[in-house]
Design a protein around this nucleic acid. Sequence first.
DNA 1: CGTGAAACATTAGCGGC
DNA 2: GCCGCTAATGTTTCACG
Lengths: 166, 166
Amino acid sequence: MADTELDAIDRKILAILQENGRLSNQEIAERVNLSPSPCLRRIRRLEESGVIRGYVALLDPQKLGLGLLAYVNVRLEKRGGTAGTRSPNPATHADLFREAVRAWPEVVACDAMTGDMDYLLRVQVEDMAHFSRFVQDQLLHHPSVIDVKTSFSLERIKETTALPLL
Amino acid sequence: MADTELDAIDRKILAILQENGRLSNQEIAERVNLSPSPCLRRIRRLEESGVIRGYVALLDPQKLGLGLLAYVNVRLEKRGGTAGTRSPNPATHADLFREAVRAWPEVVACDAMTGDMDYLLRVQVEDMAHFSRFVQDQLLHHPSVIDVKTSFSLERIKETTALPLL
DNA sequence: CGTGAAACATTAGCGGC
DNA sequence: GCCGCTAATGTTTCACG
């Protein structure tokens, strides 16, 4: 399930698609010195094996009025979980929190972390008023959340979806 | 330069393209109840106005052997800058650091932050050995860097490029 | 905004290396 | 196995109503 043996051409195709996901198969085929059919077969194989997870359009947050980016460190309650005592479905605090996070659209990334905080959230919102409402009404309102610590992005220095292909 | 007046159909187009950037114009046109030509005209307008920044393929880090994700907080030297004293080109520590960050492929995101650390880096690497080399040979080797604090991702709970469309 | 037609791209089947 | 050809099908794109 790790690597499905990628050769130099596969890597080149990935590098191209990481930069521009809408190039035509013909264009890609030219750039990797292959004819369209084997090139397409390789792309399909990369898609089916899951190396290519999907294709997306990237939007500009500023132009959509989403001017504020915050990183929020979250600490969770460690004991107990589902409301009913001795529930036959023992959802932990972690489970509950994960589900909530996945449902909140302003959370664009979330990792469980090492260190003294449990989760790191990347939160994309319109402005401070919206952020404040998010923290008060969603995050702190969540029964599993003990504590949050926020830092705001002053400036986005770099942001890429392109992975470093070894 | 903020919003270029997006109506409900534009938003629907953006929502669709954020999820699947390779749908054919015909398919999109159907889903928004338009014929292909006006739909394509809208998409072109969104591209030219920069609301759509581009199209990319998203790759699976695990399947490419990039199993380790770290968040690195960085603090910079605040005084001085270019090596030569009284340089006619007074690049600050911040400028130098930004340029370095943009050139390092393992850094997939970087923000200037509020709080006691200056920058937050998202670093995607193969394993701990690679990460260690990155910190020693690149980050700490950089003349502007005073101090770094790392946390590692134990589990990726959520990760989306889709912005919450108001 | 929609229609239609020309130009272009995708994709399956087959033969060759 | 992997490449490249061909031919049918589907898609994009643009002038015009």
